[in-house]
Every structure is written in structure tokens, then in C-alpha cells.
Design a protein around this nucleic acid. Structure first.
Length: 114
DNA sequence: GTTGTGACTACCA
DNA sequence: ATGGTAGCCACAA
């Protein structure tokens, strides 16, 4: 298992990864939210890009990242998004017609979690 | 150097 | 609801 700090030099991407790592079990966060919490507001795209650069390593809860519409963003030419549904469902996250209710499951760092 | 692309978002018609 | 546009910007070609 490679360690995060050994392979990620880009401070922004590392900030994204560390933010993602703090999302508690059973909660989700949007790309834009991660960008803001990491200290890079407005760079939601880079979050997705950074996530694409890791995929299966570091034990990051990548599946807890969804888009602002409460849905799992489809990947181009990959089936990981299907896997993502299973992982979330396995954490008790409910889907109402393919979408997640952000009012219920969105991670709020201010709350008493982690 | 320039261009095209993308696990995004907000806004507007 | 759907579709276009404009910001965002690292990365690969």
C-alpha cells in the first residue's frame, strides 16, 4: 500500500485527498464542497480530476463524493460509478430514485462527527 | 507555446 | 425538466 504523502506532491491535490479522508461513514460530500473545505473554492473540477488520479489505493472514501445534484457522476468508459452505488448503499445511504438527499446525508464538518 | 478535455457548478432561457 | 454558456484549471498531446 503506497502512502499518500510519498506519491502526491501537489499540495492542492493532497488537500483534496485529506479532506475526502475526513468524510465520515454514512455521509457524502459534493465535489464543490470538498474544494471549499480543502481551501480551494471553485475548483470542483480539480477534485474530480484528483480523484481520478488515485482510484484504488490509500483507502480513501472516494465513493462518498457525489455531484451537487446528489447523484453519482458517471465516468467515461468505466464502471466504477456502479460500484460506488453499492458501496454507498452498504453504508446505509438511501437512494430516492437514483439520487441522494443531500439535506440528510451531506457531511457537515461543524457537526459532531469524526 | 496552444488546444482540447473533463468523477464540476451556477446561472439563465 | 432540458440545454447552452461561462467560470474553473491541471494535465496530456
Amino acid at each position: 500500500m503506497k502512502q499518500l504523502h510519498q506519491t502526491v506532491d501537489n499540495p492542492m491535490r493532497r488537500a483534496f485527498y485529506e479532506t475526502v479522508a475526513r468524510i465520515p461513514y454514512g455521509k457524502v460530500a459534493t465535489y464543490g464542497q470538498v474544494a471549499i473545505l480543502a481551501g480551494y473554492p471553485g475548483r470542483a473540477r480539480q477534485v474530480g480530476y484528483a480523484l481520478a488520479g488515485m482510484c484504488e489505493e490509500w483507502d480513501l472514501p472516494w465513493h462518498r463524493i457525489i455531484n451537487a445534484q446528489g447523484k453519482v457522476s458517471p465516468r467515461t468508459g468505466s464502471k466504477f460509478h456502479l460500484f460506488q452505488y453499492e458501496l454507498l448503499a452498504g453504508e446505509g445511504v438511501a437512494f430516492a430514485n437514483n439520487s441522494i438527499d443531500l439535506n440528510i446525508y451531506r457531511w457537515d464538518p461543524e457537526e459532531a462527527d469524526e
